[in-house]
Write a protein that binds this DNA or RNA. Sequence first.
DNA 1: TATTGTTATACTCTATAACTATA
DNA 2: TATAGTTATAGAGTATAACAATA
Lengths: 153, 153
Amino acid sequence: MTHNKLPNVQTAALTDPMAARLGYQLRRVSMLMMADTGIRMAHTGLRPTEATVLLLVGANPGCRQGNVGEVLGIKRANMVPLIAGLIKKGLLHRARADGRSHTLTLTPTGRAKGSAVNRLLDKQDAEYQSRLGQQPFAVLLDALAKLRTRGMP
Amino acid sequence: MTHNKLPNVQTAALTDPMAARLGYQLRRVSMLMMADTGIRMAHTGLRPTEATVLLLVGANPGCRQGNVGEVLGIKRANMVPLIAGLIKKGLLHRARADGRSHTLTLTPTGRAKGSAVNRLLDKQDAEYQSRLGQQPFAVLLDALAKLRTRGMP
DNA sequence: TATTGTTATACTCTATAACTATA
DNA sequence: TATAGTTATAGAGTATAACAATA
């Protein structure tokens, strides 16, 4: 055989010591799926994080801004530009609850976007579920929920 | 009852429409676990990303820089400061393979750090496994592997 | 011409500390 | 005094485009 290319340390597939690491695999898959979500919702003009805020406010009209951040794990300081952006896009309406707290509601446009996002996520989850199989998909979601509640330190 | 605090829309626990969304839960859990990993390895002076590079090089002495990035999903451009940092810390040794490619190996110090990181990750995974149960833990890892290979678009 | 590493730069999301004003 | 929102700023990680040197 001429041009026999024996695998050497340079060209061989590397052994991946992370393959069995839960944290690493969670991160890689999470990033892949997040990127996929981002592409799927690009036409809405929303990024994944903005979309979650939109959906949460849609499900809880009149909720307070700080409460949204609490539920989504977004720090108060980081909520400010996020909310401002959604208001600027005409998707969110902010009103004073009392002198220091704000109340959030979707505008009609925001509700429409929210529905579009929900349909899109339904489709995405359906695709992933059919890839994994219904039962492993359910086990996966259940395991993730357990890891969130039965407290990470 | 004086001071009867009836739950209202402001103080009530919000309904979370993301609860059943795979992508969202993956992201939240991934971030929690990543942060936990970061805390556990803080004393090594390494961040999680640096640690993965260290472990991969440790398992594949003499591998090329670009190949490491490929396996870990890190772009070439972002590998540069990452590798430079590890060399500066005395953990990594870089040599020329040919005029354009570099070869990476761990220094003795790097090997020691790698072992420490591996022990630490073993412990972490063991803890999470005992929280979830052995079987769901295995199903979880398997599902994640499937989601990575049976290609995300 | 394609590959390897590099530079420069921008973007997303997150983290921290300090400030204002209200309760 | 504690809370809600805000400002400013830093950081980690990622992404893209363009370049030099080499194969």
